[in-house]
Nucleic acid binder design. Structure first.
Lengths: 193, 193, 193, 193
DNA sequence: GATGAATGAGGGTTCATTCAT
DNA sequence: AATGAATGAACCCTCATTCAT
């Protein structure tokens, strides 16, 4: 699968990420990716077995990077609220960086269907980590005894939605600031005290 | 282009909604849609000018139905919090009903690109309506003086995320209950009082 | 009795002649013909078994009309040159009236292939008639002893070419005048005496 | 193994010329052309943007070859009658070689409609050249003071008609001989001196 | 290894024909 | 008889994939 020249493989992944995000999976032609990577069309097949495989590598690379960052934050010694704040920044950056790859995966059920189980597993791992933080907060009586799964999904939902809207569409604020405001809302709610 | 038999056109729209949601735009063959609607492949073209047009009609039908419901809720005489609660139920039902059509639109930039401007306008109308409710709450000093745009996006983000996860994947709870829990979280936050 | 059926069949033939001449065989849709004839699409199939059959009827109608005129001219008591002059006017009117139907037949080998033999037979009948006139002229030592087949084809070639150019494209002169000039050229040649 | 690009493009043109002449434009499937050229269906689209474009290239190739020959004859130092005789041979060969491509163009108004203006221009150039020769003959008082446009059209009409009949249908004589007989008729007419 | 010319399966779309009303 | 909604065979074209250089 992996050709010997790691740099070229990475260049193709990077190019593919841009092209997929820009045009969507089906509208992205292998030739476009090759051109964006500065290689010939056939070269893509030296490094990856198929267009599908390129996409999976793009997703895998993004996810593993994300998971690595997530694990680091979780392992850190901090209060649950602080951890959520840090994870929020991480997630916001991820959303900003990977634009709509996640949507491609969701929207095109045929894509990654062989790998979908593993992808879901990874997502669930991420959710479990955050759920763990929330449970910790609940045990410490800092958080209400809500349904942790629902809260976790709400957490990601807020961040993704706000992230896409604020960062992709308007680049007026930095990710940290937006993440902070979103987490405030998540932690303290909309209603006045 | 529009044949006189409204029922058949509606049947095609309904079938197309299922097929698009199931397979994604590109993997959905016109023949699949025709078969699902119980008509011949050519009949689809008696009612719609193209596959693209079918998709747009599917989206339009869903959106106009949604907007109609939203306007009804907004116009109702109720407290901002109650309005948000009602809108949440509406949105949750919409997400449940339309599954990942929204994601298809987001993920495939080429789809609906001529109509994208109008679609965005509709979405912004919906956001403006909810933003109006939140502003009203802020003026009444019921809500904190947050960035209303950010809060609105967070509101939709929570509902969409929770809706997809809870309702599409696990159908253990009814939309009303899940919407209520999500809104509680949005209004009162995670942190204990 | 002149039932309404006959009228409708004739109307379809007349409409088809216009549509075929205007768009060519393949670009002429059965629906176009039906519409031009002021009837429903299905009605065409009440009178003709297929699009192909409609075209054949159009051609047959034109040819039999043409042949009838030709026979009348041949039977007339006149000098060979005068006969050719009369036939030329007839042919020029035919070309004007039927525009490019002949070209459609020639250009689309699949069209009328079952009937092509008969069509060729009719054309050859027409050629034989004119060839007979030329032979008569040769026997009377009014015409040179040329290859009658070649002369006949030249006769039709001049008339068709001049007819299409002068009458279809520029309608400045009447068929009789143009036919007369063309026949002068055919009879007396270009070179000065 | 495989020759350079140009050869394959030329092979496709040559194959297309045969297939179009044999079946007509619409009945000629792209796959037929590809097969006749000994290439895959997709290869046609490596060299030409569409079926339409293939046809236009076929026509262009034929026309430019024809025009080149025509110009050479015109430029030659010879009497008008001799020039016409040479042009006649050229035209007869062209008709023989290109069979009914011209008819396809005439019969199918939709074909080449974007290029029709240019095609007509080319035809008019050819007509103008021949008209020039005839005018020269008239000025030299070798030819009668006829309408040159009409004479030119008659010239082409004789040659095309005789060419198609004699050469395509019966291949008993060579083009030069037939052309010569046709020109004799055109120059000296049918009537005895 | 790197390339891109060659390939053909697949699908959107048209339209001649049918048939229930 | 007359209609036009319904149908599906046919065909152009795209683009992922292969392979000879």
């Amino acid at each position: 699968m992996q050709g010997p020249d790691k740099d070229k493989g990475q260049a193709i992944i990077a190019a593919a990420k841009r092209i997929f995000a820009l045009h969507g999976y089906n509208q992205a032609r292998v030739e476009d990716i090759a051109q964006a990577a500065g290689v010939g069309k056939g070269t893509v097949y030296e490094y990856f077995s198929s267009k599908q495989a390129v996409f999976e590598q793009v997703v895998d690379a993004g996810m593993s990077q994300y998971m690595k960052g997530l694990e680091d934050e979780i392992r850190r010694d901090a209060s649950p609220a602080t951890k959520l704040r840090q994870i929020a920044v991480l997630h916001m950056k991820f959303v900003t960086n990977h634009q709509n790859l996640a949507n491609i995966i969701i929207a095109d059920p045929a894509i990654m269907s062989p790998h979908r189980a593993r992808l879901r597993e990874i997502c669930e791992q991420a959710q479990d980590m955050v759920a763990g933080v929330i449970e910790q907060g609940i045990r410490m009586e800092l958080f209400k005894a809500v349904d942790t799964l629902l809260a976790t999904q709400a957490f990601f939902g807020i961040l993704s939605s706000v992230g896409v809207s604020h960062l992709v569409r308007q680049q007026s604020r930095n990710p940290e600031e937006v993440a902070s405001l979103a987490v405030d809302l998540f932690l303290y709610g909309l209603v006045t005290a």
